[in-house]
Simulated assay, not measured.
Amino acid sequence: MVRTLSARIERFPVRGAFTISRGAKTHVDVVVAEVTDGMHIGRGEGTAIYYKGDCAALALAALTGVTGAVAAGAGRGDLLALLPAGAARNALDCALWDLEAKQSGIRVWPRLGLPVPQPMLTAYTISLGDPAAMAAAAAAMRGRELLKVKLGGDGGAAADMERLVAVRRAAPDARLIVDANEAWGSTDIERTLARIAPLGVELVEQPVPAGRDAELEGLRCAVPLAADESCHDRSSLDAIVGRYRFINIKLDKAGGLTEALALRHAAAARGLGVMTGCMLCTSLAIAPAFLVGMQGIYVDFDGPLLIEDRPHGLHFEGSDVFPPDAALWG
């Protein structure tokens, strides 16, 4: 059967505000790819990696540029040559996985040899702000088991410490992850980690700007470090080993479920722990990422909770995210 690829941009408003060290967002534009064989439709969603210079419009143009190749039979194995890693390839790769599942009548997880998916604990993000605002946000979410605290704002390490102390006081029983989003490049990281460790922080994501990872060489880290902006796909791993103990896998960075699964396997072979995360996105993007997350240690799938999600999205209950049903994806 001849396959047809269509793509579009969809906009979803952010609930309140989402603020990190690089700025604030009031909405997110995602690109959606749909591949049909005339009987079945496979769908996938991607969010542009904006700090890499991508945007939804460029992702849409990239998908439009490969409609002929998809119609001619290009499959997931051809995408590495057709598209660079990013939102466009992620959306198309996931759409093809979804289409294959619908054509075969077999869900993606058994095709991967995975056990029946179960609900997973997901982190919930506390946006960057002043200590009082972050404490109020943490207090509102104090029933959640795992909070991810965005740091790296004005005032340097001392101000970040105030923010983190305020969050800990507001949510004394929560487990904490910190995400510096590359903003600690001028900080004494070893000293900073030693100061935040007594607050029960379990993990710190991306303290230094991507490309400056060598600055972490030989540090005595009181809290394990996770590479996010420094780790996109398997080609990133050589610069990770010995500097980070975890990587954050995001399907948009990897360019799809296919590469994300390969990256998880390669990371495990190198002794690296895995957090599976997301950009701001809807449940359609989290559904395929769920299959990577169930093979890792930490999961950060709160993207749909931070925006006005699409109808009939994933089910969230308490601190858990539940597996997608076949009507959503896969």
Rank of each mutant, 00 (worst) to 15 (best):
I9Y: 05
F12L: 13
G23E: 10
H40N: 15
H40S: 14
I41P: 00
R43I: 06
R43M: 14
K52F: 13
A57G: 14
A62H: 06
A81L: 15
L83Q: 02
L92A: 07
D93T: 01
A95W: 03
V108E: 04
V108P: 00
L112T: 09
L112R: 09
M120N: 06
L121N: 04
T122D: 07
Y124A: 07
S127P: 08
A136H: 09
A136C: 12
M141D: 10
G143V: 03
G153Y: 02
M161D: 10
V167H: 03
A171R: 04
R175C: 09
A180V: 06
A180D: 05
L199K: 03
E205I: 10
E205T: 10
A210Q: 13
R212T: 15
G218M: 07
P224W: 02
R234K: 14
A239K: 12
R245N: 03
F246M: 13
I249N: 03
K253M: 01
A260I: 10
A260D: 05
V274S: 02
T276W: 03
L284D: 00
P288W: 06
L291S: 12
I297C: 14
D300S: 00
D300M: 01
E308V: 10
G313P: 01
F316S: 06
E317T: 07
E317F: 04
V321Y: 00
F322A: 11
P323Y: 00
A327F: 03
W329S: 11
